[in-house]
Write a protein that binds this DNA or RNA. Structure first.
Length: 288
DNA sequence: CACTTGACCTGTCCGC
DNA sequence: TGCGGACAGGTCAAGT
């Protein structure tokens, strides 16, 4: 579930909540969730201050004062939830979480010197958190291969379309989901943008016209920006850094709307398997 | 080589 | 009510 808009929402929340806090200790239940050596952790994480938080594709980068970074992928069920203390006062959103965490999905707990905490929860244990030198971040496989950020101001419709043309004989949905083509798109926003552009997800890239690519580009950016505004999409697990749900699914046109009428033409939305994923379309608006 | 499928995990939901 | 099985979605490895 965490796609670009969800990870960006978490980034903004964390930037506000943990910047300038200093790490006092870290607890991890599972070497898969946090595989770093205790020596590295002691030297470069304990005592480090949070400087800044960036995002690349669906990956979060927490920069530390030690020139190391925590690199985090939430995969499907990951959460990063902050629980604070008096600094915020009564009524702060994170107050309501006190006592609820840790729970059985908690994989990593970072405690700051003021006793506030950041919990990395991940029901399905697919996510991970790495500690590595900031200078090495661009050299990890994922960063070397990942495509451009779709919401950057200088990312044009022309560039968008050009990234697809090398994949002429692949279905459009598979290419949209490919992180090396364009970064950050997952199942929800692939379905939503294809419906919005009236493109059937099973169409081969070579059958899609330049005009359709331009529409898809515009719709994708519109939808992702709106999703960020709404705090992302909460289907099951995803929550913001304050532990709140995102509300974008209230605005969704096809995702999880199987059996409901298309908001454009009233035809019943159907769900089927495409590119190995559950896929939602309006069979009238989106044809092969 | 390009593309598709399976594995990784756990919780939830559906049908019998 | 209990149980098996399908399903959820991101990415990488393995298979076609």
């Amino acid at each position: 579930m965490p796609e670009l808009p969800e990870v960006e929402t978490v980034r903004r929340g964390l930037k506000d909540l943990i910047t300038s806090r200093t790490v006092a200790s870290i607890k991890s239940d599972n070497p898969k969730s946090f595989p770093n050596s205790p020596v590295d952790v002691k030297k470069f994480l304990i005592g480090a201050t949070i400087q800044d938080i960036n995002r690349r594709a669906k990956v979060l980068l927490i920069y530390l004062s030690t020139d190391y970074a925590l690199v985090i992928h939430l995969k499907m069920t990951g959460q990063l939830v902050f629980i604070g203390e008096k600094r915020f006062g009564a009524g702060h959103p994170t107050d309501s979480l006190i006592g609820r965490l840790p729970d059985r999905s908690t994989r990593v707990t970072i405690t700051f010197t003021d006793s506030s905490r950041l919990y990395f929860n991940d029901q399905r244990k697919f996510g991970w958190m790495w500690l590595l030198p900031i200078a090495e971040v661009p050299n990890i496989d994922f960063m070397k291969k990942v495509g451009p950020e779709p919401l950057e101001a200088d990312f044009s419709a022309k560039q968008f379309a050009a990234r697809f043309t090398q994949r002429a004989n692949t279905i459009i949905k598979a290419v949209l989901l490919d992180q090396t083509v364009v970064a950050g798109i997952g199942n929800i926003y692939a379905d939503e943008s294809l419906w919005s552009a009236k493109i059937h997800p099973g169409r081969l890239v070579k059958t899609i016209t330049p005009k359709e690519f331009t529409t898809l580009y515009k719709k994708l950016r519109l939808i992702m920006n709106l999703a960020i505004e709404k705090g992302g999409s909460t289907d099951r697990n995803y929550v913001t850094a304050e532990g709140k749900k995102g509300s974008y699914l209230e605005f969704a046109q096809v995702f999880r709307r199987e059996g409901l009428p298309c908001r454009r033409c009233q035809t019943t939305i159907i769900k089927f398997k495409c590119a190995g994923r559950g896929t939602h379309i309006c069979p009238n608006c989106q044809v092969l």
